[in-house]
Simulated scan of single mutants.
Amino acid sequence: MAAVEVAEVSPQDVARVRAALVERAPLVQCLTNSVVQTITANVLLAAGAAPAMVDNVPESAQFAAVASAVLVNVGTLDEVRARAMALAAEAAQRSGTPWVLDPVAVGGLAFRTGVARDLLQFAPTVVRGNASEVLALAGAGAGGRGVDSTAGAEEAVEAARDLSRRTGGAVAVSGAVDVVVHGDRTVRVRGGHVLLTRTTGAGCSLGALVAACAGVEADPLLAAATAHAHVALAAERAARRAARPGSFATAWIDELDAVDAPDLGSDTGRFA
């Protein structure tokens, strides 16, 4: 069995990706759940990306072929949305467009679990979810309590590594300390704030930001780590001036806009 290599992701690497995102303003197609569309679009705009909620069957594949990146989030799912997602993911794979799979609440419900597992055949660039979702997607767990994880990120590392080897992409597991793996490479991203867990759509928006970063950075592990670091630093700053969920959500979006490449470049101690 090969030894696990600890990835050396530096603040300077992350700063470079952040600068590229602002410079290139990637166009991110979001096939996401109806609960989070507004905050997802606002997070992408604040970060410097361009959101496009093109999620219908006639257009999803065509748009995926020309977008900078695609997000597929299975949060509110029906048969029509599932078809549009499959078409977009297949078109993204065929055209070389990076795409992110967010397996929301996978494990507890058979339909969404089957849809998400079927989407793996299209080789997502990044899978991003909480520990319970990643375990369930890999066939190593039964899922969490709805969208909430009942497992810690470290418990899902081996399942994440298995998924990464199967898809060829990175897998990002959110938790008290986020873990991102790509094959045998691993990076941990510290920080953030508990108020993110009380903000509707924060995790889903993180998936969109991972897609935006993947649209400007070829290394999926670095792209995912950059998005996680950006979200964490912005949350810490927002929490200093907003102590409750409503005001925090607004402050967090403001801080996502304010955090720039030099901020992330000087953010030492974030990665392990």
Score class of each variant (00 low, 15 high):
V231W: 01
M1D: 01
A25W: 05
A234D: 13
V9I: 15
P98D: 04
G191Y: 00
A218L: 05
V35W: 02
A47E: 12
R24C: 00
V179K: 08
M85N: 03
P262I: 14
V187R: 14
V4A: 12
C204S: 12
L87I: 08
P124V: 03
R81F: 12
V181M: 13
V173D: 01
A176L: 06
I39F: 12
R128D: 06
G144L: 05
D55Y: 06
G246N: 10
V28R: 10
T40S: 10
A261F: 10
D148R: 14
G168E: 03
Q62W: 07
A86D: 14
D78G: 15
D55R: 04
A156Y: 09
A251W: 11
R185M: 04
A110Y: 06
A116S: 14
S205G: 15
A82S: 13
A159D: 14
L196F: 00
A19R: 15
A243S: 13
G108N: 01
A239Q: 13
A52W: 10
P103K: 04
T226C: 09
V106W: 02
A82I: 02
V134R: 11
R166D: 13
E155R: 12
A105T: 03
T38N: 15
A46M: 07
R112M: 06
V35N: 13
E133Y: 06
V100S: 07
A170G: 04
V9D: 13
A153D: 01
A131W: 01
T250V: 15
G141Q: 08
